[in-house]
Design a protein around this nucleic acid. Structure first.
Lengths: 194, 194
DNA sequence: TTTTATTGATTGAGCAGTCAATTAAAAATA
DNA sequence: TATTTTTAATTGACTGCTCAATCAATAAAA
């Protein structure tokens, strides 16, 4: 039952299925069969559209990076002062779209992957550098020289909170995570004003 | 060339080799062959002493948990006031023994594993709960009701800093990580004293 | 008739786990 | 002390399974 123009639809479906499959089985535990089954197609079709498992996983990673960039940009446009811009970034990190269990653990799986995979490391480094640069830029007027260290601290805490949120045993909520992050930032800003 | 009494020695060697192999190949990418080769024995011997790959990896996880508990206890004995006790825990997390690239990425690999593996999740939950309970206990006299949230924040930041330290692209140092953590704690303590 | 979507069957590699055979130390026996 | 026996360490060869990747065949739309 072939309908024309399926390519972009199937690619999208497979990428989304990959996120969920990674959540269930882990990045290396997942098989093309898992992903294809979830997308409702045959494993052969996944190969047809992506050429290889590596390519499909790589596309999945780019998809996540793109979604986050979009969420952050959307929140940044109507944030005027530096403090609001910092908050926009924090909110983007814990918005429901970004923060479903499946999306979070796929993100973290790619973090782990980039420990020993150069290609993944390159993609992730771009994302992390940009995130820190944005934070540093907006923090500079607020804390001066401490901006760089604070940006690194915030970036680290975001990832730590994601990591803990991904562990089902701890059942942490996004709201709680945001609160902890804001307390951190407020504490540093208070010290800087002294 | 069989020498008697090799069992404990080989088990130890294999566990340490497993940590390094996990660092290079990831938890699911690693094979019994990788680990055995690094330990200088045949794959069959690894099976002989551990029965299965799962058992070897589980023993490796327990090894890491045990080493950390030891490092923390050692630093806690001569920490007198609450603030010194908090610092003892932070220092244990970033002490050179705990903080080699291989050890850090093996830790994180087990974090990821426990997203979809019940047995790993149980072990890790015990560790995390105990860490947070210790922090909370020592923070209570310093920040009162905020102790619980601050303990969670510190635990999250520790793991985030580990995660970033494991990414070779960012080349972060343990000293920097400790500085960021201490700034966080100091900021919150200053706010609490107000 | 051409092009695109789709799959079932197949291949080949890699790997966990098994087993029987080998070696040498230690213990038991003469 | 000299010997035989037992026990532990160790491995190479083998088995069976899973999975990524390929390909030829089919079906429908254009």
């Amino acid at each position: 039952m072939p309908k024309r123009g399926m390519q972009p639809i199937r690619r999208q479906e497979l990428v989304i299925a990959a996120v969920e499959a990674i959540h269930e089985r882990g990045l290396n535990g997942v098989t093309m069969g898992d992903i294809a089954k979830r997308a409702g197609v045959s494993p052969a079709l996944a190969h047809h559209y992506f050429g290889s498992k590596d390519e499909l996983l790589s596309a999945t990673m780019r998809h996540l990076l793109g979604e986050f960039a979009f969420a952050a940009r959307r929140r940044l446009v109507d944030a005027k002062d530096p403090r609001a811009r910092v908050d926009a970034i924090l909110e983007a990190c814990f918005a429901p779209e970004q923060f479903s269990p499946a999306v979070t653990s796929a993100w973290l799986a790619f973090y782990m992957q980039s420990i020993h995979d150069k290609a993944a490391a390159r993609l992730l480094a771009i994302y992390l550098k940009r995130l820190e640069a944005n934070l540093r830029h907006d923090l500079r007027p607020l804390v001066g020289d401490g901006a760089s260290a604070l940006a690194r601290g915030i970036a680290a805490m975001i990832d730590g909170l994601w990591l803990h949120a991904a562990l089902p045993t701890l059942h942490r909520s996004p709201g709680e995570a945001l609160g902890i992050l804001r307390d951190y930032v407020d504490g540093r800003l208070a010290v800087a004003r002294t």
